[in-house]
Amino acid sequence: MNIPENLKYTKDHEWIKVDGDEAYVGITDYAQNELGDVVFVEIETEGEKLDKEEVFGTVEAVKTVSDIFMPISGEVEEVNPKLEDTPEIVNKDPYGEGWLIKVKISDKSELDDLLEASKYKELTE
């Protein structure tokens, strides 16, 4: 299971990669593997300000529909445009090409509540 050291994680299996006041958010390798083939990603919150732990979209695998939650409060600035036609990138490259949204962070202190890679790894074992 791939769990990069430089990211932070939620117990709901999202990851966040902080870059200044912005961050990329996606689902973890563990999550994509549990879901199986991702066939549809629906995110219609672009431009919205959402609170931490609010639902920002859904990931649909063949048999399941899963809500995805904001790891931190902020504005959804961008949705990965490649998801529309190639949702399978979430399976192939969950931490890279398969990112879901770019967020403008409201309160960076919330990052302290997120899990380090080692803690998240314990959750998946």
Binding site: G36, D37, V39, V62, K63, E88, N91
Partner: peptide
């Protein structure tokens, strides 16, 4: 295989992926 419970049996739900 990923194994799930189905109708009282441990059954394979997928091996390489449903689409594949």
């Amino acid at each position: 295989a990923k194994i799930v419970e189905f109708a009282g049996f441990n059954m394979p739900i997928e091996y390489t992926g449903v689409n594949d």
